[in-house]
Design a protein around this nucleic acid. Sequence first.
DNA 1: TTTAGGG
DNA 2: CCCTAAA
Length: 462
Amino acid sequence: METDRKSHSMKKLDDVKCQRVDQPVVPGLDDEVTEVEHLLAEPKIEHVSVDGILCFGNENIEKHLKMEDFSCAFDYGWKISAGGLDSIRGRGGDDLKLEVLDGLLDEVDEVDDIDAAHDLSGACEDFLLDSEFPEKLSELDCGPREGSTLCNSSSESHSPGFSGRSNSVGGISESSTATVRESNSENGGLGKRVGCDLHHNFRRKHGCQGPVMDVGRSSIEHMQDLDESDDDEKPLVSLILSNQKVKSSVKVTKGDTLLRQKRLRKPTRRYIEEFSRNSNMEESKSHKIQPQEEFPQVPSESQPWRGRPKKIVLKSDYELSASESEDGRKRTKRSKTACDRRKHQKMWTLAEVIKLVDGIAKYGVGRWTDIKKLLFASSAYRTPVDLRDKWRNLLRSSSAQENNRREVETHPKHAVRPLPKPVVRRICELAAIHPYPKVSSVNYVPSSEQPTTKGTPVYYSA
DNA sequence: TTTAGGG
DNA sequence: CCCTAAA
């Protein structure tokens, strides 16, 4: 199965490659280009020799319009004209791609690169996905070309990392690699500085987490939903791949994009969070962060929010508490850290829950790793622990729902996400079969049946 | 490294 | 969701 998937994606890659040979394969890049021109005020892209561009007609345009709206909606005071817009797009969307990639290409070693690449995509992409995913999905399935349409709506410049990696995979773009190098040497310093400033602003304006991210996340959620339902993301692969291609093309054409590219590439979501945290510390005198310096390349950031740079966080906390005892600002610090504790929580979809329940039914309670591997292989953000936690919560909520069903029905407000009856039933059954310690408030005999009054005889195995 | 349990 | 301890 794994290999199957792999080969599949490879195939897709090949397709992409082939296409690229014949034609620039940058469908819809056209739109993109206009946009870039806009931003850079230095249009000279003749790259747009696309045959298939006509295929997308209205829809494509529509998408872009939406995108614009979206961007506008997020003008937070910092300049969107040159970099702002870009950076907005730069975040959030990546996670999306990353997720997908993580699921699909976890065989690849250079996750870092992927990650980097992901850091760049666009929130707008998410946005689009969010609003039109269903259609999009089918579209994508039709082939890389279609995929590109969508992708091209993401940001134009993209990480060197990916192109490098692509080479190893399918030799997608050599030119892009070269360009990248060039860019790095050219715009390195400036890019960094700008990036920092950007982040300063960002942080200042929205605390550690900007709305952008939120948007991105929610869209991701939707996507996940769909993705989840059939556990197949191949279309997305093509999407991503073609996206990369587009990116490289653009890169080749535009050197200027690189500046932004650099700036975008660096900071990760995680980084922003860390950064804000550190800045707080800086306030209280310890640990100084030098923005001018190379971005700390967010520690072990191979997964979107799953990164868990434990050590760093711990260290920060440590220092925080240290400074706490020194200055009297305890409370501020405390609350702040407490606030951003729940960094990346992703809502569980019904599909996921059902899947989880299925998995538990199959493999039993406690084999979280197995369940994760077999049923949640595609969702990188669900760790076995998450599954377990979710199960715990499910047990709790389901039992609650069972007990006060009437009350819940009378006060629907209290039932936020009611959880379909059948699911609850299944959970209860499973709970009966696999007692999860500590969860059932009932002090019943270990593996006995739960309050279910239906007389299913349960036998003790001992 | 995975599970269990607590926060 | 995060963290830690124990296995």
